Simulated assay, not measured.
Amino acid sequence: MQYSKLGRSGLNVSRVCLGTMTWGRQNNQQDADQQLDYALSQGINFIDTAEMYAVPPDKDTYGTTERIIGNWLSRHSEKRQQIVLATKIAGGGLAHIRNGAEISGETVLQAVDASLKRLQTDYIDLYQLHWPQRTSPHFGKQWPNRIRFTDVDTQAHSNQMLEILQALDDCVKAGKIRYCGLSDDTTWGMAEYLRLSEKHGLPEMVSIQNEFSLLHTKDWPYLIEHCVRSDMAYLPWSPLGGGMLSGKYLEGQRPQGSRWTLLQRNGLFRDTQAAQAAVREYMSLAGDFGLTAAQLALAWCDQVDGVTSTIIGATSMGQLEEDIAAFKRPLTGEQLDAVGQIMHRYPMPF
């Protein structure tokens, strides 16, 4: 296993981060225990979760994933210092989480304490804001005029961000969290948080996790360059395009128990004709390389300049083993060029 520095935190994290959002819905405690044990045996030390999980989110599964991890930690307390544990506070809009309240200084303090209790730990290594207060160009909203930046009160949002940082600072000083990060944010959000941190002597954001895959590269080059220049870790989530790049959803297939058989908050916006065509070509190319389609997509993501650690998730041990194996076999220059040719034909398929 290879390791990278988690931005300006100084923490070393595995190039593979174990995502956990299926635990509590598609996976149970026993499944999670097996995945955690195997991941650690393969050198993975980076675990990502969120108070909102499992997904799709609802009031019945809220906090379940953190509780599952906490149950594992309660039985493996000696391994707590071996892992970098990351979780996230949910943003506004979910009625079953603090009545849909936005992130504020007050909700940060509440959410951190609740996550610590569920996780059965005294500290969180990386505490992330799951999404910003303003609508951001993620989840299919990256197209021009899909959202309106000019409708946002910039100063009001900056004031909210300062209040959030002040609450995070209280948590850092109390020893409850070590470092802070972002999720589903933009270059402006990153820059504004860093500006406020420097101006007021508050904790700096050390990372950002956004959707990034062969089918969704909108963060390249501008946001990823900003990460590199600002010494912030870039953590791709959904490197398989919501599972699409495995090929299991081609031609309308919906394997029993798979994610696309569950109710999706944003619908199946990734399932377009262009995305289907791209997946067919990537699958064919992967076969030529002696790889599965998922392994091709993960190996490519790992080799994008500026990527720190790729967040993977699996609902079976077979999937987890397949995914982790992808990081042990880097693509050659010729193989990367072949991937690039397909990407040029399908630059933004959803």
Rank of each mutant, 00 (worst) to 15 (best):
V13L: 03
D288Y: 10
I69W: 00
S74K: 14
L126D: 02
G242T: 00
L214T: 03
A39H: 06
Y62I: 12
I68F: 08
Q142C: 09
R75W: 00
P137E: 09
T121W: 09
E251V: 05
L182Q: 03
E334M: 08
L119M: 05
E198M: 13
N28T: 08
M343F: 02
Y222M: 11
F149K: 14
L165D: 05
G318W: 00
N145Q: 15
R75V: 03
I177C: 06
C17Q: 03
L320D: 01
G242W: 02
A54H: 01
D113C: 02
M1V: 12
A274S: 14
L165A: 06
D305A: 15
R270D: 01
A191Y: 08
G333K: 11
K248N: 06
Y222H: 13
Q303G: 09
Q155E: 15
G19I: 04
F46C: 02
G92H: 11
Q335W: 08
A314I: 03
S183C: 15
L285D: 08
G19Y: 00
Q276A: 15
A32F: 11
A326P: 02
H138D: 10
S136I: 02
T332E: 12
Q81R: 13
R195S: 09
V228K: 14
L263F: 09
I324H: 00
C171T: 09
Q341S: 13
L94D: 12
S104R: 09
C227Q: 07
V206F: 01
L6M: 05
L245N: 06
L6Q: 07
L268A: 14
V304E: 08
Y179R: 01
I311N: 05
Q34T: 05
Y62D: 06
L126Y: 03
S104Y: 10
G318V: 02
K199P: 00
E281I: 01
A156H: 12
A174W: 11
H216E: 10
S77P: 04
G91L: 06
M343I: 10
A278R: 04
D219P: 04
D185F: 05
Q110A: 12
T315Y: 02
E102M: 08
M21W: 10
L194W: 04
G93A: 13
Q264C: 06
